[in-house]
Design a protein around this nucleic acid. Structure first.
Length: 289
DNA sequence: GGCCAGGTGATGG
DNA sequence: CCATCACATGGC
């Protein structure tokens, strides 16, 4: 097993990242040791990378350990945890906007990604229109039954495994009939190569919309979430998202949830970092009183 | 019990 | 093309 030190540009607050991840029963978080085990697949081989925080928000440093190929693992860790973005630039931008107080309160919160695109896609479908705790529970059942536990970390099911299921298999886990169909159908497309997830990294936001929206089960909200939480695109604003609407209502002290027009007006000065605005609005709902 | 949840597709004007 | 509705189930 090798070990490598990472130095990240401040501000970067990892403890908050871990605290949030610990809400997800599938994440192997150890708050005391300030570390997380990350499941990775490289050429279909599973590896576990351990990322441990050894610094502070103002001087963020990390120790990464793993037993797989070093270069791809380290660069994937940096990508997943948003370690190569200049958060200071983004904070400077928002300090001049109507979200300055939220950004001040959550300084150093990075745009963290799902570990795998397939996980991201399945999670989006499963989370649609469900409260968070039940959504986490469904995703947990899905991975516990069809995924694999390796060195204390849950690895996602393979698309081929899910492609071979019947809807009744997922109904047993309390998926709705439609969700079961969406999940199996999407997995079939991925397993047979109709959908190539690796390709997504090279497509523009617009091309992704054109490709994904026609697929049953994928609407605007899901595309935006995949772009944001799967691919880390910086300028997405899921206007249909009920959480964002509630966060805006509260932050701006509105009597009702905002209309699309109000949201467009309020968000003008957030460009070109709409994803960060969305992220910090979500955090404001989760943690602020 | 009723309303809402980090939506989406189908239906009817 | 827009407004409305069913979908499944848990949480409050």
């Amino acid at each position: 097993m090798w070990e490598k030190e990472l130095v990240v540009e401040p501000p970067y607050q990892f403890d908050q990242v871990l605290r949030r991840l610990s809400n997800d029963p599938l994440k192997a978080v150890d708050l005391n040791n300030r570390e997380i085990k990350v499941p990775m697949r490289i050429d279909r081989n599973p590896y576990v990378a351990i990322v441990q925080s050894t610094g502070t928000t103002a001087a963020p440093t990390f120790r990464v350990r793993a037993n797989g190929p070093e270069e791809p693992i380290v660069s994937d860790i940096k990508r997943i945890f948003g370690m190569e973005h200049q958060l200071q630039v983004i904070h400077d931008h928002f300090s001049q906007t109507n979200l300055s107080s939220i950004f001040q309160r959550h300084i150093g919160t990075p745009l963290m990604l799902d570990f795998h695109l397939y996980h991201c896609l399945m999670k989006c479908i499963i989370h649609q229109q469900l409260n968070l705790s039940f959504a986490y529970e469904l995703m947990k059942r899905f991975v516990h039954i069809y995924g694999e536990l390796i060195e204390g970390v849950w690895f996602d099911p393979l698309p081929e495994t899910i492609a071979d299921l019947e809807t009744d298999d997922l109904r047993k886990l309390q998926f709705s009939q439609r969700k079961a169909e969406y999940v199996i159908d999407l997995s079939k497309r991925i397993a047979d190569g109709t959908l190539c997830l690796e390709e997504w990294h090279h497509l523009t936001d617009l091309e992704m919309e054109e490709r994904l929206l026609p697929i049953r089960g994928i609407g605007p909200w899901t595309v935006q979430n995949v772009l944001m939480n799967g691919l880390g695109r910086p300028n997405l604003f899921p206007v249909a998202d009920i959480g964002i609407q509630n966060a805006i209502k509260r932050h701006f002290d509105l009597p009702e949830k905002p209309t699309k027009e109000e949201m467009a007006a309020l968000s003008k000065e957030w460009e070109p970092y709409l994803s960060y605005a969305s992220l910090y609005l979500w955090r404001s709902l989760e943690t602020d009183k």
